[in-house]
Each structure stands twice: as structure tokens, then as C-alpha cells.
Amino acid sequence: MTAARASRGEAIELSDQRVLQDVGIYRYHHPLEDAAAYKDRLRDLETQIDSIVRVGQPVLAADRFTFDGSLAKGRKMVGDLSKLMLRAYNAEADNCVRSLRSGNISTAKKRLEAAVAAIEKLGTIMEMRVNPAFHALRLAELELTADFQMKVQEERELAREEREQLREQRRAEQELAAERERLEKEKSHYVIVMASLRASGDDAAADELAGRLAQIDEAIEANDYRIANIRAGYVYVISNVGAFGPNVVKIGMTRRLEPRDRIRELGDASVPFRFDVHALFFSEDAITLEGELHRAFEDRRVNFVNERREFFFATPDEVRDLLAAKVGGLLEFTDAPEALEYFQSRSRWPAATLGSGPVVVG
């Protein structure tokens, strides 16, 4: 969809998808710390805008224009038309602000520039034009509003992900604490039984239980290490060919006692099929290992706007080779996804959808 420019006969692209593609990654015009800072800056800007309007300077025009031979009538006409032009300009500026969405700032600025050009063309006889200082303030308002919207969106996404990380952390802590309690109970049981066997003279059976107790002590030690070391966990490589296509993987990490529980949660109702697991690798510093893998595929991200999304255009084989180079031989790695639900479902899909395949979403 396009809008004609009155002054130049050019077209302004209004398609959000086209504009967002042309703009690329959003760049802040006025980098500030948080959304609250943008809100404060916008309030200051509104004060400046109101100040220019109060002193009668938003629209500049000739002050010696006469009408019907009268300078007074000419000034009144200029004043009335200036108010009308200001209304038109402010209406367009307010509409640009109201319709602004993250990323389409370039379109809004072009529309406002078109309004300035149209007013100047219509007011040529009276040398009427929008005050450049006033126009600059309204352009700054557009930029700050766009920055504010983007910052709010980022903060909401960050808060959501932080809440999810906290929930994941609590689940991991609860699972490890429950496992510690289970192991302690099992150990206490074996200690009692072994003491009873020693007392009855069955040293062979007691020695067998002693071996089991040693294994339990090792498990307790490993569990305590997991509890104390928040960087320890599993790095996983998973895919969902039915949702994202054949050459997209997710590389993540979890501290959960059973990492497949986390992967099952990722395959909830938000995606049509469950994830396939290609690799699970326990690392004493899973956070660093995950970061190294992400950096290796940095230029092949699916989502370049939100880098906390861990999907990459890569095959499981490519990740396996890199992972093996960093940690040594992998005991278990699955190259091809099983994707049972996806392959079984395709036979029931409408014929028109089968040629397109899965759609990648970031």
C-alpha cells in the first residue's frame, strides 16, 4: 500500500513487512538506558513543543501580506491560515505517532516530511512554512516514540525470559534437592541393613552392600557438585523439522536433573510437534560451552533481533563436528531426526500445503 506525496508525486511505502525488511535490524536514534528514561525525555519534548505553540512560532509566514488593500486584513488572513495549516500538520504528526509501530519509523518520517512540503507549496504566496525548529521537535518525538516502543518490547521480552530462567532454575534446584534426599534415604537404609548383616556374620552380603554404598556416596557427591556449581549442566542440540524445517537446530543448556524433561517442555502447545534430540552433553561449565557454540554459528541465526532465541540455520552434523572438536568424542549423537509425529501427519495434510514444507519462524 502506498500514499502519494503531494509535493513531489512520489510514493511512500506503507507495507509494514516491506518497510521492516528494508530497514533491517532496528537501531536506536536516541540510546537511553530504559523505557522510563524515554518516557521522561518524551515529556520534556512535549513541553518544548507546547512552548513553541504558545509563543506562536510553529508556522512561519510573511508579516507584510495585504488583503483587499489592508495590512490588518492580510495579517488576520495569514494568522487564520497559519492556524489551519498548523492543525493539518499536527493532525498528520499525531497520526504518525499513533500509528507508529516498532520498526516503521522511516515511513512515519517520510509522511511527516510530505506534510511539511505540502504546506510550504500551498502557502507559497504568503511565504508560509512549518518552522524547521518545530518540525525537528516533532521528528524527534517520532524517533523517541519508536525507541520507547522498541525498548518496552525488549524489556517485556527480557522480563519474560528472566521469569522463565528463574522457573527453570527453581525446577533444577528442587529436582537436585529431591534427589539428594532420595539418595540419603537409600544410604540410611543400606547402612542399617549392612550393620544387621555384619552382626549376623554375613560378611559377604555386607561387602556387596558396601560397594553399593560407595556408589551412593559418589552419586551424592556428584549431586552436591551440581547444586553448588550453577554453571554445570547439559548442553543439548535439538531440532523440530515439522515446525522449522530440516536444517534448523536449537542449541541450549539446562541444569535439570533429567534434561529430557526440559526438552519435552519446549515441545509444548506452542509448536505442532515434539523436538528431536540429537545430542545431550554434560559439562562442568555448560554456560561457556553453550556460548561458544552460539558464537560459532552467530552469522546463521534465525532471529537476528532477539539473540536470546537459540535457533540456527545448521545441520545436526555441523554442530556435532564442532561439539566434538571442543569436548572430544561424543558417546551418543543422532544425526537424522526421528520426527514420527511430523512424518505420520504429512499424509493427512491438505495437498496444497505439501509442496511448501515447514515454515521457519524466529
Results as ranks from 00 to 15, higher is better:
R170K: 15
R170S: 11
R170D: 10
A172E: 00
E175T: 03
E175H: 05
L176Y: 05
E179N: 08
E179L: 13
R180G: 07
E181P: 07
K187L: 14
S188K: 14
H189L: 07
H189F: 06
H189A: 08
I192P: 03
I192A: 10
I192G: 06
M194V: 06
M194P: 04
A195C: 10
S196N: 06
L197R: 05
L197Y: 07
L197I: 01
R198T: 06
R198H: 12
R198D: 07
A199E: 09
A199H: 07
G201A: 08
D202T: 03
D202Y: 03
D202A: 11
D202E: 13
D202S: 08
D202M: 04
D203C: 10
D203V: 15
A206P: 11
A206D: 04
D207S: 11
D207E: 14
E208T: 06
L209A: 04
L209Q: 02
A210C: 05
A210K: 14
A210W: 03
A210R: 15
G211F: 00
R212S: 07
R212N: 07
L213C: 07
L213M: 12
Q215S: 08
Q215M: 04
Q215T: 04
I216D: 02
I216W: 02
I220G: 07
I220V: 13
I220P: 05
E221G: 08
E221I: 00
A222L: 15
A222E: 15
N223D: 10
D224G: 10
Y225K: 04
R226K: 12
I227H: 05
I227K: 09
N229I: 01
N229W: 14
N229P: 09
I230Q: 15
I230G: 08
R231E: 06
A232P: 02
G233V: 01
G233D: 00
Y234P: 01
V235R: 01
V235E: 03
Y236P: 00
Y236R: 01
Y236I: 00
V237N: 04
I238E: 02
